[in-house]
């Protein structure tokens, strides 16, 4: 684990102290948010706010979940979940299929297709936001799950990753499958998919977080409160100008909004790290 050589008394303690300080800095904003989500509005508008949690945890979280801002948070969480899963599963499926075609078949326009797909690596949705909005609007997909999900599926990262993975699978395995009588579809289902399952799971974690955390896109195309996702919905709750807002409810919403992806990262830490390191290679 450790690459350094000497580890003695004071040095070790300084190391731990430094790390604990770093963690404190990183965690402080979350702690403050958590505390704010357990107290009353009165506790917050007269600074300084308390630094230890208060007794109003359930009041605030229930109000957020059931009333929320323009839409109840439970509904926004549900929308976020549908969008995140849609993006994740959609990307994985279309990428698996196209990577399989590009690696395991020789066909006309193969390299052209590869480069067409590959070019999407270069363009995050933020860059082509206005024209994409127009296309989605002209297709009548505003305020729909389809409109939320489909444009964000057009990305090459996953295709590229699966292509790299398939290239490392030994040719002999494919040959053995052919000798065993497996055609292309059987080979894909019986051999390639099971062999890729850890990579698929790792990618699932990364893409789920990516999908859940989308902000600008839902902000643009969901004008109906019932279609809001939680990440953008929280923005609608923020003050504009000097008006006062229910900070405890906003902070409860913020905690709820980050809970699913944080749980995914911590719960599947190993897969997450693997997915992260590999998708950037």
């Amino acid at each position: 684990m450790s690459g350094m050589v000497e580890k003695r008394g004071v040095g070790t303690w300084l190391t731990h102290a430094g790390l604990i300080f770093g963690i404190a800095v990183i965690c402080f904003p979350i702690w403050i948010a958590f505390v704010a989500s357990t107290v009353t509005q009165d506790d917050l508008i007269r600074p300084p706010m308390p630094l230890l949690p208060g007794p109003h945890f359930f009041d605030n979280y229930l109000e957020a979940l059931l009333t929320g801002g323009v839409a109840p948070v439970w509904q926004m969480l549900l929308n976020s979940l549908v969008m995140a899963l849609g993006i994740t599963i959609g990307k994985i499926i279309i990428s698996l299929l196209s990577a399989y075609a590009i690696v395991y078949f020789r066909f006309r326009f193969r390299m052209l297709f590869f480069w067409l797909i590959f070019m999407t690596l270069m363009l995050p949705v933020e860059v082509r936001i206005v024209p994409t909005y127009e296309v989605v609007a002209s297709l009548g997909l505003l305020n729909s799950y389809t409109g939320l999900i489909l444009p964000l599926i057009a990305s090459a990262t996953a295709t590229f990753l699966f292509r790299q993975l398939f290239m490392t699978i030994p040719d002999e395995l494919t040959e053995a499958a052919r000798v065993d009588g497996a055609g292309p579809i059987r080979f894909f289902i019986d051999i390639l998919l099971p062999m890729s399952r850890t990579n698929i799971a790792a990618l699932f974690v990364i893409l789920f977080i990516y999908g859940w955390n989308q902000y600008l896109w839902p902000l643009l195309i969901t004008t109906e409160p019932s279609m809001n996702t939680v990440i953008m919905g929280i923005k609608q709750m923020l003050p504009t100008g000097d008006q006062t807002v229910e900070w405890p409810v906003i902070m409860a919403t913020a905690m709820l909004a980050m809970l699913p992806p944080v749980l995914v990262v911590i719960g599947m830490q190993k897969l997450f790290v693997k997915g992260l390191v590999e998708s950037e290679k």
């Binding site: 196209s98 066909f107 296309v135």
Partner: peptide, 24 residues
């Protein structure tokens, strides 16, 4: 088969990537 396999991704890429980028 290979065309069928790349079709979904190509379709999405064209509609939500090349079309808007061309528009831009």
């Amino acid at each position: 088969l290979p065309y069928l396999l790349v079709a979904p991704q190509l379709l999405v890429t064209f509609v939500f990537f090349f079309w808007p980028a061309g528009q831009a």
